[in-house]
Nucleic acid binder design. Structure first.
Length: 198
DNA sequence: TCATTAATCGAAG
DNA sequence: CTTCGATTAATGA
């Protein structure tokens, strides 16, 4: 979701900056704001009983997060953590709902947005249900690439560390590294100086 | 250059 | 596939 910043401000939105590793909200916190990224990147994660991190999503500029919770009376099911120096616009929940009411067009794009999230979640779950690590990575890469309006072949640079990719698909780094090498051999991806091109 | 973080590798489970 | 141990590369102060 990407809403005009002036509009967000007119409904009480304020800009806040966060340092890398700052926590924006924690699992179990009350949902009180709509967040939209002006600059930087954040991740949504949880930890399993062994303390291993699972990343649910990584969001960048002009993307919002936690917004589906604004329509529910639930607490956050995940943590939101900053990956780098970032700037976010924060709008109080009730103001946000007010804004939606006064701008029906927003409601429509909100639907489109949430629909798309559900759609990609399903695609991700489909590939994640595969036992094969290469299929899981392929699913992740397809998802990432779908956000990229690239045209050329194998020119989409994956801006994620291998560790992050591993935590996104539920595998270990080493496994990801080895699987990526196989995929490179098969010509499914290209690797230039450790950078992955898909 | 020192320290920290990420990427790799090989061997074993 | 994961875990462990160790090395090497890249990055930033």
């Amino acid at each position: 979701m990407n809403i005009d910043q002036q509009l967000l401000r007119s409904f009480g939105g304020d800009t806040r900056s966060y340092k890398a590793k700052d926590t924006i909200f924690k699992e179990g916190d009350h949902v009180q704001y709509y967040f939209q990224i002006v600059k930087g990147k954040i991740k949504l994660n949880t930890y399993d009983e062994e303390g291993r991190e699972f990343i649910h999503n990584i969001l960048g500029i002009n993307q919002s997060f936690g917004d589906s919770l604004l329509f529910l009376e639930k607490r956050y099911p995940v943590n939101a953590v900053c990956l780098e120096l970032s700037e976010l616009i924060r709008v109080p929940k009730n103001n946000f709902l007010d804004m939606i009411r006064k701008h029906p067009d927003l409601s429509l794009s909100m639907n489109a947005c949430l629909s798309q999230r559900i759609y990609f979640k399903v695609l991700m779950m489909k590939s994640m249900s595969s036992q094969n690590p290469e299929s899981r990575l392929k699913g992740l890469l397809d998802y990432l690439k779908s956000y990229h309006d690239g045209d050329c072949i194998q020119c989409f640079p994956v801006e994620l560390t291998r560790q992050q990719m591993a935590n996104l698909v539920g595998l270990r780094v080493e496994t990801v590294i080895r699987a990526l090498k196989k995929m490179e051999k098969k010509g499914e991806i290209r690797i230039k100086n450790r950078k992955i091109l898909y």
